[in-house]
Simulated assay, not measured.
Amino acid sequence: MNPVSYARYLYTGSTIKLSKELGISRQYLSRVEQGLYDKPNDKILDWTVETLNRSLEKPVNQDIVLQLYREWQWQQRESTKLNKALRPLEVTEYAKISQGSYRQHGIVYYHKVFEQWRGDYWPSAHAFCVDMCLHPSPVAEYEEGETITMPNQLKKVLSSLKLIGEGFVTSER
């Protein structure tokens, strides 16, 4: 379980009360619980450590909580890969010919190939990001072609899960 979610489970107040106590938005807290951030802020980590240490026999610190958080993220990603039976992201003939740029000039836009692949499994970039514990903004910008290079965190996750397949390039230029 996400250690922040577990600490919130132990907490007796509402999410709104907790977010006010910590001086953060309820949305930020929710996104941390979904695993969308690589590292929660220090307020969340300190609160999680304090809350967990009230009920654990062996005390934890920020490093341990962060390690548990990241392990939970990877478990979520691995589980998603297995449950959805994800195939690697590849540049197929269909991916090529479905792009007018390829038919006209032989250019493949890899962000569009990614978007097609993602669309085979998830209805939106946000749903993908929640399942893969990724922040949605860089992924949405990549899908929309606002950035020409795959975001580092997305590249790291897909590479580690061995989901970057044949012929796929993570940089457009």
Rank of each mutant, 00 (worst) to 15 (best):
D63M: 08
E21C: 09
W47I: 01
D38Q: 15
L52Y: 07
L56Q: 09
I44M: 05
L18D: 04
Q67F: 12
L29S: 06
V49S: 00
R26K: 14
Q34S: 11
Y37G: 01
L29A: 04
D63H: 10
Y69N: 04
Q67I: 08
R54F: 06
I24F: 07
E57P: 08
L22I: 07
G23A: 08
P59N: 09
E21S: 14
Y28M: 05
K17N: 09
D63C: 05
W47H: 01
E50T: 10
R31C: 11
S30Q: 12
D42N: 13
L36C: 05
S25W: 08
L36I: 06
N53V: 03
R26H: 12
K39Q: 11
E50S: 11
I44Y: 03
P59M: 09
G35R: 03
N41D: 14
D42Q: 14
N41M: 04
Q27N: 13
Y37R: 03
L29V: 08
V49E: 00
N53I: 04
V60M: 05
D38P: 02
P40K: 00
K43L: 13
E57H: 15
T51K: 12
N61K: 09
N53W: 10
Q27V: 14
K39W: 07
K17A: 13
T51Q: 13
G23I: 06
L66W: 03
V49H: 01
K17I: 05
E21V: 12
K20S: 13
L29Q: 03
V60Q: 02
V60H: 04
R26E: 13
S19G: 02
